[in-house]
Design a protein around this nucleic acid. Structure first.
Lengths: 231, 231
DNA sequence: CGCCGTCTTGACTCGCCTCAACCTCGGTGG
DNA sequence: CCACCGAGGTTGAGGCGAGTCAAGACGGCG
């Protein structure tokens, strides 16, 4: 457990300003853990006893309605902190974190959060920037849902996914974790049927290529047009 | 300007733990300002050079789409901090703050934010709790928009409004600032026509009483039923 | 090989948006 | 004091986007 390499953290904004010795300290107090695809790291309503850093893999942040429907609030890409409830004074996690593929995390007990903030210069600031960008993304989602049609929302979500977690490949940008039509419908507030129809149409139009749990965007600019960026 | 009363701040969470002398200091560095109804305190995209406390009145936080449609992200009630962009490392305001009625604010330059955080015990923690509750509310909005029908969303929004800013009156709870059908439609992602129809129906059913720019909820529990709280 | 999770496609239905006309206040100015 | 005007609100008719229902195809895994 003490053999984690310092280089794991040096490129991650909240830790970037720290000395090697400090990073050593932080790593030594971290618990690393591996998760299979499709399992939950923590669940909505659970006591927020730890906060996490995603070293590798992708995570879906999910809220479940009383009726059992799921809504995907956002995706976390590797290198990001998550489970930041303690930073916002929350005693419980407000949502479930579910792995989209195999994931590797570090985590620390909530109790030492104040210590991190006090002791490590720039940690708080950088972390709150992350929160800020998530707030911003949520804002955008609300506006999208309020004003745009399903087709535009799905296009927006795809673009967001390839921007945040896309991998450039031969003929386009591919989403590097398994994602189903159902997942996309849960991000956009629609049904898997409608998503399937849209993706089929876009595939015919040569904008994307998609297979089982896999989507590659060939012409991102065409997608941008579909989002309704007019005039 | 130096004659602001300390009692203004003593009941407001971020300042609650402070000594009178500290509150004096804070007040002395604040600029008070009055706003008419329907004007903007700051606008989306403006440099976030100040952060605010709403002493009296109500504020709408608005985002405008490229097409000029407006979406109301949330309402701020008196006693709340807003314009917290600096707390999240934002250089510009992510949304416009528009007064719903006559408003009284205090404000401080962004530049002294770090000083506030460092100097005043509990200030940061309490402020981030506010951010946390706003994030939570946005989360809920996203889930609502994704899963619920218009009628349910409007019911949810009304309930949220009376919980946050409702005033108990003779025969129910009234929203204490002017609000139009259009405003509600901008909160729920629908049209003023649909909102008008719904409110008419609810009025006939005796659930609410509404007039020009004014809504009073008579039977909140009936509204709760309409939100789809089943089983 | 058979099963299950994923994806596709068609047909039908209906909630809500759009279009349109009209009403009702409250404020303003002659 | 009243006529006017504009913002806010109401209500009907019609159409379409997208959800629902239904039936199957495809591909991977045990």
């Amino acid at each position: 457990m003490k053999n984690l390499d310092e280089s794991l953290l040096t490129d991650i904004p909240p830790f970037r300003k720290l000395q090697n010795a400090q990073i050593r300290e932080i790593l030594d107090s971290a618990i690393p853990k591996r998760f299979d695809a499709g399992v939950s790291v923590f669940e909505e309503g659970m006591d927020a006893d730890r906060f996490y850093l995603l070293l590798d893999g992708h995570i879906r942040v999910i809220r479940t309605t009383p009726e059992g429907e799921q809504v995907i609030a956002l995706y976390i890409a590797s290198g990001q902190l998550f489970g930041l409830a303690p930073a916002l004074g929350r005693k419980q996690y407000p949502a479930t974190a579910m792995t989209a593929d195999e994931c590797l995390t570090l985590s620390w007990p909530t109790r030492i959060w104040p210590e991190f903030v006090a002791k490590y210069d720039g940690f708080a600031t950088e972390t709150y920037k992350i929160v800020g960008s998530r707030v911003d993304e949520m804002h955008s989602r609300i506006v999208e849902m309020a004003t745009q049609h399903v087709e535009q929302r799905v296009a927006c979500s795809l673009l967001r996914l390839i921007n945040q977690t896309g991998k450039k490949v031969a003929k386009g940008v591919e989403i590097e974790f398994p994602i189903t039509r159902q997942n996309i419908s849960e991000m956009t507030g629609t049904t898997l049927h409608t998503v399937s129809r849209l993706l089929s149409a876009w595939q015919k139009a040569g904008i994307i290529v998609s297979g089982r749990r896999k989507i590659t965007v060939i012409k991102p600019d065409e997608l941008v047009l579909l989002t309704g960026a007019k005039a």
